[in-house]
Computed example of a mutant assay.
Amino acid sequence: MTSAGNSGNPSSGSTMRLFQATKRLRRQLLAGLTASALCAPLLAAEPSPPAQAPSDPLQLLAGVTDAARQQPYRGTIVLVQGGAPLSIAIEHRLVGEGSELRYVALDGAPFGMQLEYPDRDCQVFADPVASLAQLPQRPLLAQLPLQEYYQVEFLGVQRVADRPSYALVALPKDALRFARRLFIDAKTGILLRSEYLSGRGQLLASSQFIAFHDSAEEFAIVAPAATQAAVVECRGALEQSQRIAAAQHSNWRLNWWPQGFTLTDYRREQSGLESYMFSDGLAQFTFFVDPANPLAVASIGGARGATSAVIRQLQDPRGQQYTVSVVGELPRAAAEQILSSVKFNPVRAATP
Score class of each variant (00 low, 15 high):
18 L>I: 14
269 E>D: 15
289 V>G: 07
258 P>F: 04
9 N>I: 06
287 F>L: 07
5 G>E: 09
185 D>S: 04
178 F>E: 09
258 P>L: 11
276 Y>K: 12
294 P>H: 01
245 A>R: 08
193 R>Q: 12
188 T>L: 00
273 L>R: 12
296 A>R: 03
218 E>G: 06
204 L>I: 01
321 Q>L: 15
114 Q>G: 12
168 L>S: 07
313 Q>K: 05
199 G>A: 15
280 D>Y: 02
270 Q>D: 14
5 G>V: 09
352 P>I: 13
211 A>L: 11
2 T>P: 14
206 S>Q: 09
52 Q>F: 02
320 Q>E: 12
182 L>N: 09
342 V>Y: 03
245 A>G: 07
75 G>K: 07
103 Y>S: 04
98 G>I: 14
270 Q>W: 02
105 A>C: 06
71 Q>W: 00
284 Q>G: 12
205 A>W: 01
73 Y>N: 06
290 D>I: 09
50 P>S: 03
214 D>Y: 01
168 L>I: 11
72 P>M: 03
39 C>L: 06
60 L>A: 00
339 L>W: 08
59 Q>L: 08
249 H>K: 11
9 N>S: 13
316 D>L: 10
312 R>Y: 07
260 G>V: 02
176 L>I: 15
266 Y>K: 08
331 P>I: 07
97 E>G: 10
310 V>R: 00
184 I>F: 12
109 A>C: 01
291 P>C: 03
190 I>Q: 09
348 R>I: 04
143 Q>N: 04
3 S>G: 15
264 T>N: 00
295 L>W: 01
141 L>H: 03
155 L>Q: 05
95 V>F: 00
58 L>Y: 03
220 A>H: 07
293 N>H: 08
169 V>S: 01
311 I>K: 01
155 L>V: 08
141 L>V: 01
272 G>I: 09
148 E>R: 15
32 G>N: 13
96 G>K: 05
40 A>H: 08
285 F>G: 14
284 Q>Y: 12
72 P>C: 08
296 A>I: 03
269 E>K: 12
214 D>E: 10
296 A>Q: 11
161 A>V: 10
19 F>M: 11
123 Q>D: 12
245 A>W: 01
90 I>Q: 05
267 R>C: 06
87 S>D: 05
7 S>V: 10
93 R>F: 05
273 L>P: 05
240 Q>G: 08
98 G>Y: 06
49 P>D: 10
233 E>I: 09
89 A>Y: 11
125 F>N: 03
95 V>S: 04
